[in-house]
Design a protein around this nucleic acid. Sequence first.
DNA 1: GATTAGCAGTCACGTGGGCGGAGTGCCAAG
DNA 2: CTTGGCACTCCGCCCACGTGACTGCTAATC
Lengths: 339, 339
Amino acid sequence: MVSERSLAVLRAIVQDYVESREPVGSKSIVERHQFGVSAATIRNDMALLEEEELIAAPHTSSGRIPTDKGYRVFVDRLADIRPLSATQRHAIETFLGESNDLDELLGRTVRLVSQLTRQLAVVQYPSFARARVRHVELVSLAPTRVLCILISDSGQVEQRLAELDQPADEATLARLRDRLNEVAAGLTMADAATALSAETEHADRAHAEVLHTLAATLADQAKITRSDRLVVAGAANLVRTEQDFAGNILGVMEAIEEQVVILRLFGEMAADEGIAVRIGRENAAFGLGDTSVVSTSFAVPGRDVSRLGVVGPTRMDYSQSMAAVRAVARYLSRTLGES
Amino acid sequence: MVSERSLAVLRAIVQDYVESREPVGSKSIVERHQFGVSAATIRNDMALLEEEELIAAPHTSSGRIPTDKGYRVFVDRLADIRPLSATQRHAIETFLGESNDLDELLGRTVRLVSQLTRQLAVVQYPSFARARVRHVELVSLAPTRVLCILISDSGQVEQRLAELDQPADEATLARLRDRLNEVAAGLTMADAATALSAETEHADRAHAEVLHTLAATLADQAKITRSDRLVVAGAANLVRTEQDFAGNILGVMEAIEEQVVILRLFGEMAADEGIAVRIGRENAAFGLGDTSVVSTSFAVPGRDVSRLGVVGPTRMDYSQSMAAVRAVARYLSRTLGES
DNA sequence: GATTAGCAGTCACGTGGGCGGAGTGCCAAG
DNA sequence: CTTGGCACTCCGCCCACGTGACTGCTAATC
């Protein structure tokens, strides 16, 4: 029921408000945009938008600011996700291309995203569950101390120390390692966990006890779902935009540090296609009422999908955030797909 | 030149000010502490302290607050580092005892310290340089793709992917692995790096190229000094105490995220014995003028010493911070010493 | 019917004066 | 050296006022 021009006015309001941080009035709109109509006409449109609850006035005689609903319309229908500049694309390639392992790649990714968007950035650790066991290695550190190393086909390495009840020599360990490799290799982490647990039962040798311990350790390791871990960067941006939050930036920081909140939110957002955006009150259930989250998924072959995104004030540059998040996620999926 | 009682007054001022966040007057001192003298006497002492620049008055007729110099005297001569409560000690044991590997241990440590002190906590990653090579493992992921794994005697694992120019089969890799182990095992990481680089020269076989690549990768890996990495937790505490900073909490957060600043500061603090404390303007060179840092070292056998500490406003509970930092560092040194 | 100009009304915000209270500094007496 | 008393200072608070930036409405215009 809102005219085309009214929506354009909404777009203008969102853009100007995000930039200036101040309620925008009809006069400043005609000054900064070429609408070809007078301020009074804009005022009429604004009255319409207010009726639809897309914008609101903080005080009776002040300019207007977008409501959460207004941002929603903006994001869904009005935002143009303009691709990143060539310089920025280049920055992604070079900065992320230098990474040696997954840890470093994710660390660089999250820093990059926070710099591109000037927002707090979050990356979810890819899950281990669907990866396949490539190799199991046992390294004896001391007679009763064995380092169990689990290597997945995507190159992720998990290590864990096992304490044995009785000493085991190198030859024994070599035999056990072969046995364990036989059992676990090629299985997904989840399957490997059950298989290794089962192996525990076949207590047919003198080293049953040792085998038991090692198999249990490996099974336990394989069950680790790293996807419940987040990498975070750019908390300073949260402080920088502090006045945009209703002062309770503290709650947001605590939620970020808890991690659980963001993980649950990511879980919900997984239902959305493409780039998911949650705005303000939509996150109220998570205690993030004045916060918006922009996220999308990236895929690591052989693993569960995981997500990356940014967290910021409702008043954020959605276009920029969506563009950056999309570009980096695409790059990540591509790079990880190759290895 | 300041009397014994004057110092006691300073102690009272620091304690009350830290607690109440408000300038403390002579009257409130006699109310809250048993000095057995009147407010006027306290005032005389305060005049002395002010002459020595240990305290200052924000306005002509207001209570006094400690200066940086006052905090310094407090920390050096007046603070009683009372041991942690039994509950807290127990918490350290149980919470840190559950850790499986070094990463997790450090992560738990930094969270624990930030909770104990209600301050931002920082732990420096132990350096790799002085650890010894326990084992080198090569895992073939694809014909031209080899995962190099470097295991130190303290159980730390570093992995890195190597791309080969020509395919290498399992048997070849096994031979190369034995060779590399022969060269590197038992050496410190630093020595191993040079030894492996040298190995690159002996290009005597068809697989010279492959050997070259792998040795170079491992040498590169051994050179990694992880000690230039920090683990951080409790940034929310910085926000919580925001009004204690002269408003520029942003600079502090950026310094923390840069990491370099803290690492340099830790480097300087390494000169001090025991628990080092840097107060306010003493950190001005680092852009941390309103910030205090309490840190101490912990030792990982076979590695360089590294540090852990807390960062907070000048007005912090130094006794509590020093006690917690000391207790946790001791526990860490002990635990890591065993493995 | 949409658009425009003009005008009155409203409210946030900054400024300045007045007031109370907390706390000091000093002095003279104990 | 300590104490009680007293004058003084200055911050923070409150309120009242003027100003400026908008809006909403109405009547005229295209």
